[in-house]
């Protein structure tokens, strides 16, 4: 029976504990890590990568638009008829809320840290950050607004029915084709995809920095954001264009 003295460092982290495996200490360690700005950015990065994974699969799935109405509708039907979809949806909402909540909190704090707006550096000076990196909060909010509108238009939009191989299912292809016959909607959609591109081009690379995985040796990881954004943004860009020009018939 030794003398129990609690040692804590500045962040409330227990140090020098022989019984550090106890649950209460694990809690203290988690609180200390997640209470720090570094820990919070870590969570933003993890959730951001999760959401990146979602947009990637969403883009890849939508490539079936090029195959034809039946393939696309069948994909949508298979995806929504499994009970696993509810787990995936809850997961997605958790990812989104964490990402949104933390970034808004951090943005507010960051603004407070900088009482005077940073100077707009002249464009010929190298000491400036990329446009995408300076406007992450704004592009994020625009993507949020777009996502809500997108759900209203498609997920909760008009329900057409069709049958593929005798199975009745939703004719989502028809709705997509109808929506992208509108010039203004297609144009708005394309603008939103450019915004998504800028958000991903900075965010995807930055996530690996926040997770501590970037190094000067790994050039590919540094460029990964641009590559990923071209892939996802580009994929989402050609789909409405295709539907506008060739989706009507």
């Amino acid at each position: 029976m030794g003398l129990e003295i609690e040692f804590k460092d500045l962040s409330g982290y227990p140090i020098g504990q022989s019984n550090w495996k106890q649950a209460s200490y694990t809690m203290m360690k988690c609180k200390s890590f997640l209470g720090s700005s570094v820990g919070q950015k870590f969570l933003v990065a993890i959730t951001g990568l999760g959401l990146s994974g979602f947009v990637l699969t969403h883009m890849l799935g939508n490539l079936l638009l090029f195959v034809g109405p039946d393939a696309y509708n069948l994909y949508g039907h298979k995806l929504t008829s499994t009970p696993l979809i509810y787990i995936a949806e809850v997961g997605l909402i958790v990812l989104f809320l964490t990402h949104f909540g933390l970034t808004m909190k951090l943005t507010r704090e960051n603004r407070a840290s900088r009482p005077v707006a940073p100077n707009q550096l002249p464009s010929n000076v190298v000491k400036r950050a990329s446009f995408a990196s300076r406007t992450m909060a704004l592009s994020g909010l625009m993507i949020l607004a777009f996502a809500v509108l997108h759900l209203v238009t498609f997920k909760f939009g008009t329900y057409y029915e069709t049958t593929v191989d005798g199975v009745p299912m939703r004719d989502l292809y028809r709705l997509v084709a109808e929506e992208f016959q509108k010039e203004w909607y297609t144009a708005f959609y394309l603008v939103c995809m450019v915004i998504l591109f800028t958000h991903l081009s900075h965010g995807f690379t930055a996530a690996f920095q926040s997770l501590g995985l970037q190094s000067s040796r790994n050039k590919l990881l540094k460029r990964s954001g641009f590559i990923f954004a071209v892939l996802v943004g580009g994929g989402f860009f050609i789909q409405p264009l295709y539907m506008y020009f060739w989706g009507g018939n």
Partner: peptide, 22 residues
């Protein structure tokens, strides 16, 4: 403990978080 304490002090001094702008 060094990194934890320095980051905790950094946050306490009201420096902002890193947005990886470079």
């Amino acid at each position: 403990r060094r990194v934890r304490n320095m980051v905790a002090q950094m946050d306490q001094e009201m420096f902002g978080a890193c947005s990886n702008t470079g």
